[in-house]
Design a protein around this nucleic acid. Structure first.
Lengths: 124, 124
DNA sequence: CTTCTAATTTGACACAGGTCTAGGCAAGGG
DNA sequence: CCCTTGCCTAGACCTGTGTCAAATTAGAAG
């Protein structure tokens, strides 16, 4: 059942190591790429956005499915991808399943590509 | 020959509209997803990193090729993907071709997923 | 002009990934 | 108990993509 994969990159270690400080190692790149791949899809990007701005911070799958011209299995597939990447988490309450954002992983990704270094800020 | 595609999203309009302010529209998601797809690959992530932290802010292709166990055509392919997404730009000087980062697009992407809103900061 | 090196383009291949239909499992109501 | 609703899984299909070998273009040097 819960085939939940732990977030590949722990966000605590992401204080100040953006893309341009020093070259990414092969293994670092291999860990980070799947995170970006998870959001590199229009449907998943919108799903993430819908969940993130929903009041209460969590959203029922039924609300998400209704926002797309896609079948429920397809939405379920995309939610699974996001969850396995560690970007969202979920819980069943009665008949419905609710999803919410894991902000730490998003923040880690943002910091990596963010303009936090001379090279990326264009002064290099 | 320069089939350079202009950056899909103009970074100037990216002051304060992260993922969680309001749901992404279908067209916004369709424009943004290719940007993340461009960096959703270990090789391209490392390429971007190598270019970003290279002294002078630009890197010769020969230096990039030497950093991977991949053939030159493959590196060239990945550079093309990054360039068409607007993340990097290039220029030929004599025998060699140099690449550099376009920091505005990276910054735009970072801001989108960054912890700039209550919902993503975990207070929602 | 010829030759050498640097980088890209082309074509082919195998694998990954998005979508659907069909089927299965859980929870609630007769 | 059976039936309905909500969600997920399994399998199939087709497209997209990463990789390489071979061929091509661009510039520099003899």
């Amino acid at each position: 059942m819960s085939k939940q994969v732990l977030p590949i990159v722990d966000a605590d270690a992401a204080c100040c190591a953006p893309l341009a400080c020093e070259p990414l190692s092969e293994s670092e790149a291999a860990e980070l790429a799947p995170l970006f791949k998870a959001i590199a899809d229009p449907v998943r990007l919108r799903l993430l956005s819908l969940i993130a701005c929903h009041e209460g911070g969590e959203t029922c799958v039924c609300d998400l499915t209704a926002a797309f011209d896609l079948t429920p299995p397809t939405i379920s597939h995309h939610l699974k991808v996001l969850k396995q990447a560690g970007l969202i988490d979920s819980e069943r309450r009665g008949t419905w399943v609710y999803y919410w954002i894991n902000p730490a992983v998003l923040a880690r990704m943002s910091a990596l590509i963010g303009p936090a270094s001379p090279a990326l800020a264009g002064t290099g």
